[in-house]
Amino acid sequence: MLGSAPGAVPDATRARPERFPRPALLGFRHVTNSAAAEMAKKYGLSRMGARPPLGRYLAEAWRRRYFAITLSRYTVEAGDSDSRLGSLWVIVRPFLSAVIYGLLFGVILGPDRPHNFVPHLLVGVTTFEFFAKCFDQGAKSITGNQSLVTSLAFPRILLPISAVLRNIFELWPMWVVLVLALLAFQQWPSWNWLLVIPMLGLMTLLNTGLALISARLTVHFRDLSQIIPFINRLLFYGSGIFFTLQSVTKNQTLIHLFQINPVYDFVEAMHSFLLPGYEPLTQWEWTALIGWSVLLPVIGLLFFWSAEERYGRVE
């Protein structure tokens, strides 16, 4: 309004705004003082740290995708730079744990263990490793990068996404080694082996959703990052990595409950594509697998985005 006296821009103070409302489950509403807000509007100022609408948020994240890609590439490079074997550990670690579980459960389970035990175990551990690491590193992606968050402005979603990207970069060497190991155990390739690739694509969706959810939850409850290894442990034992469900129970309700766990379904799918003698997934299992993989990223995105203003808080 040009009618107002020159220089008489109202000082944006006085009238106290309402108390900042408690955070809603999904979002944070912002209550503003009308005098200051009006003046800001008049001169084209926008509120700092405000969460942009979802569309603009995603567009901005896409524009800055190279930051996420570079961050994840560098994190892979730096990841094991302190140790002698360096990035070889990416491959060695899962196989070392496979050896330990193989020895342990091979002995404990005795004749109850699945036939073809070592390939069964290797496929399961490799599949699970991708999931567990995305979950764990996704949860730490905001709290562990506090100095990036408090000194640079970028859509925070790039951090959990870069945690998932990092694991995609580490994925292929692990799978190459798995294929070599399967060949060594005389598991001969079939066209079905190629189905692993779309399965890993679906799993990436699932993992991204989970990384987004856990990244935000860890901001609210820091202790979550201490609990996640235990959740992972639980899922590991519940995902048919060293047993087949049918050998454990005949109770159909219990079996169906197990099959709601998408990690179990992914492990089973990999088993059925890579190894002979496995039943294909049931319709129930496919529904759970695809359902989670589509639902979680959508929920994760909304859940993460709605707290965008929170992430810079230093606590």
């Binding site: 200051a36 001169y43 926008s46 740290g49 408090t150 810079g312």
Partner: peptide
């Protein structure tokens, strides 16, 4: 940090014509 929008205000708001850039002496990036 609040002017830059990194630390959210518990009450009140900061408005600006463009995203301010903060130069601090914090820790290293990575």
């Amino acid at each position: 940090r609040t002017v830059a929008g990194f630390t959210p205000a518990s009450e009140g708001a900061v408005y600006a014509t463009s995203q301010p850039s903060l130069l601090g002496v914090g820790s290293a990036l990575l």
